[in-house]
Structure formats: C-alpha cells, structure tokens
Computed example of a mutant assay.
Amino acid sequence: MKPTLRIVHLFCRLLQRERLNRENVIEEYKINSRTFDRDISDIRNVLSELHARDELIYDRNDKCYYLSRGGLQDFTGMDVMAILKVLLGSRALCHDEMMGMVDAIRSLLPYEDRKALYYAIEDELKNYIEPMHGKAILELQWRINKSIINKQKIRTIYTKADGKRIERDVLPVNIVFAEFYFYLVAFRDESEYEYPAFFRLDRIESIKVLGKVGENPLYTNFRYSDMRPAVQFMYAGELLEIKLRCKKSALEAVVDRVPKYEIIQETDESVFLKVTAFGEGFIRWAAMQGEAVEILAPQELRERMGQWFAKAAEIYMHAVGDI
C-alpha cells in the first residue's frame, strides 16, 4: 500500500473512533516502527493545520492511539446499547427508518464496540416488527419542527381513526412520543379548550405552511412539560382534579403514570390520592387497572367509569359461539 493511502486509511479508522494498537498496525501494514511513527506524526500535523478540535492521544495502558473529541465526551458502548434497546423497544419507526437510525448511532462507536453491540441487539434487529401503519415519518417530523421554530401555522390533511379525512388549520407547538406513536401537539382554531390537541404524525397525509403568526401568546405561554404529567394515552380535553383509591400494590403504577399527586390518607390495604389529569385519557388508563384503582370523584367521572365496566361486563356475560 502506498504511504499516502496508508495514512488516509489510518486517519479514517481513527475518525471512526477505532483505537489503533501500535504493534497490530505495524504487523497489519507490514511496516517498521519508524514508518509508523512518521505516519502518526503526519496525522498530528494534518490535525494541527486544520485547527481541528480533535487531538491524537496515546494511551499507555493499552498502547493505543485514538482521537479525542476536543473535550467532548464520547458515547460508550453501554450508552449506545441503552439508547438502542429503548429505541428498538419503542417500535416507533418503520423498518427502513429504524435500521438507518440504528446504523447511524452504532457508527458513533469504535469498531470493537460496534461488533460487541451487534451481538447485544442482534435478535431485536432481525425480528424487528414495524408499527402497522408502516409509514416513514422522520422527514415530516423535521418539516413540522421547522414550522414550530419559525412560529408558522400549518394546514394539515389528517385521517382520523374511523378513516375520515379532514382538513384542519393548526398552530403547532411541539412533537412528542408516547405509546408507540409520534404526535403533533397543536392548537386548533375552533378549539373550546385552553389546551392543545394531539395528532398522530403517521395519520397526517400532507402539510402546507400558511405563514408566521407573530408573537402569539400560545407560543410564549405554553409549555408541554407543564401539561405532560396530566396526559394519559395522548388525550387532552378538560383538566380535572380526581380523587381515587388504589391498592398499595398498585401505588407505584399510579404515581409513575400520574406524577402530580397528593396522598390524602392511607389504610392497611389502600392509599387515597388526589391527582390532576385529563379525564378522557385517565378513564382509559384506570379501566386497565381493574379493581386495583377506584375513581371516587368527580361523580361524573365515577359514573362514566361505572358505565364502562357495565358495558364490558354485559359483553362477557354472553357465551361465545363458534368463530
């Protein structure tokens, strides 16, 4: 291999966060120690001439050269493994987008760590199941994010859960992820609520930027972080103060789901709490807890929960015929 090509090759390996062991490189490229030292010196000169933040460093413990990141902290293998485990477990993206993102994140690691990481996530990669909609959403997400930054109203063509297509002008304020899907958080022109609505990104067929809205107080006053603890299953609507009883065994599940809470009373088996949540989403979550969670107030919400259970019980009281 020509000297120039060899130096470029070594430099590329360093850029990929590979650690170059002196003896291994000498053996691999069939060069002597003086040639290796010249190559390292040439790479250092290139970095200096480019005024690069990266610095070529020698680790005396494992006798390897590697590129620093100008004081920035590199991702470790365990960092990236945790990120990819969460990402793959979320099933948030279609197959092609997920595989592309996994490859991009893995490339942040040195070669040896990338190889070890592959074995840690190999099963999830080979058996990844994309969401049913199967749509690519990253480009749409980025376009909407630009409208949020520029404070621009957009017109969306949106397909509802029943298949009905609607056109709606909205003021986007955030994009969030929850329960397998990305959602656009946006205020509707005709909304009767003081809080925004949620629109699944995969159901947005198209968007059109309508123009800037100026210093709208909805942008300056709204903080999704204030709203998020009260949201369940991405249903907004009316914000309620809800009193409930839960079994002590279910307390952790309740407070993790609704972090804005106040414990009112405790008994040997139960805990009585007051939580702040959006009613529609909270009913759907509470129904999944069965007898472990009981809504005490407001009365209207308690009655709706009772009606929900009554309808469910009626369904299960009838025998199932042959299917």
Rank of each mutant, 00 (worst) to 15 (best):
E112A: 15
G306F: 07
N221L: 08
F187L: 08
M317L: 13
L301F: 04
E300F: 08
R302H: 11
L201M: 12
E215K: 04
I31E: 06
N127V: 04
R223P: 00
M1A: 10
A313M: 14
G279T: 13
L20T: 01
Y183L: 03
P3T: 11
E291G: 03
G100F: 09
A319H: 15
I315Y: 15
E280H: 10
F177I: 00
K208D: 03
L125W: 00
E291R: 11
I264C: 10
V170T: 11
F11P: 01
H9Q: 15
E215A: 11
P3M: 01
L93V: 08
D59H: 13
F187K: 01
D79G: 08
K115A: 11
L84W: 00
A186N: 01
V320N: 08
R228Q: 05
G70N: 03
N145Y: 08
N24Y: 11
K247S: 12
K153T: 06
H133W: 08
S270G: 01
N150S: 10
R304S: 04
C64V: 12
N21H: 09
I157R: 07
K151Y: 03
A136L: 13
L240H: 04
D113H: 11
L171P: 02
V213A: 02
D189Y: 02
L93T: 09
K208L: 02
M81K: 09
H318V: 06
S48T: 07
K248I: 08
I264Y: 12
T220C: 05
E269G: 01
P217Y: 13
K247V: 01
G290Y: 07
E28H: 11
V173L: 08
L67P: 01
K164W: 07
P172K: 08
R13F: 03
S249P: 04
I166E: 09
Y118H: 00
E23N: 12
Y128W: 05
L184M: 10
Q307L: 03
K212R: 15
R19D: 03
F182P: 03
G134L: 00
E55M: 13
E238L: 08
H51V: 10
L109C: 05
E179Q: 12
L14H: 14
K2C: 06
T35R: 06
I83G: 07
A178S: 15
F233P: 02
V176Q: 05
K85S: 09
K126F: 13
G77S: 09
Y65I: 08
A319P: 04
E130A: 15
I175V: 00
L201Q: 03
N174P: 06
E124A: 14
A292W: 00
F36T: 11
C64D: 05
F282T: 10
V209M: 06
A186V: 02
M78F: 09
E266L: 08
F278C: 01
Q232Y: 05
L50Q: 14
K243Q: 15
G321R: 14
E190Q: 07
L117C: 02
D202K: 05
N174H: 07
S270N: 15
A136T: 14
L171G: 00
A286Y: 10
A253M: 13
L244G: 09
D79H: 14
I149S: 02
M305E: 12
R6I: 13
